[in-house]
Amino acid sequence: MAKNTGNGFRRGAVKNRSQVRTPSGWIKRDTRTGQFIDRKADAQPFKGVRKEQ
């Protein structure tokens, strides 16, 4: 399980999730179903979530 450290980074990876960059920002997606889960309001990517090509 991924844990937040409180120092701006996360220990471990978030499992069964990926993120993709779109013109409106970063979107988190479930890798098993392909459904979009969450969208970031700022331009920074999610912490500890793998990036798709």
Rank of each mutant, 00 (worst) to 15 (best):
M1E: 07
M1H: 14
A2K: 13
K3F: 11
K3D: 14
K3C: 09
K3G: 08
N4P: 05
N4S: 07
N4V: 14
N4H: 08
N4K: 09
T5A: 07
G6P: 00
G6D: 00
N7D: 15
R10L: 13
G12N: 13
A13Y: 08
A13R: 13
A13E: 10
A13G: 14
V14R: 05
V14K: 06
V14C: 10
K15L: 15
K15I: 07
K15Q: 15
N16D: 14
N16K: 13
R17L: 08
R17A: 10
S18C: 14
S18D: 08
S18P: 00
Q19E: 03
Q19D: 03
Q19F: 02
R21D: 15
R21A: 14
T22Q: 12
S24V: 11
S24I: 11
G25Y: 06
K28F: 01
R29I: 01
D30P: 05
D30T: 09
D30M: 12
T31I: 14
R32V: 13
R32N: 11
T33Y: 06
T33Q: 01
G34V: 00
G34L: 00
Q35E: 13
D38V: 04
R39H: 05
R39L: 15
A41P: 04
D42A: 07
A43K: 02
A43Y: 06
Q44P: 00
P45H: 03
K47N: 06
K47D: 09
V49Y: 00
E52T: 04
E52W: 03
Q53M: 07
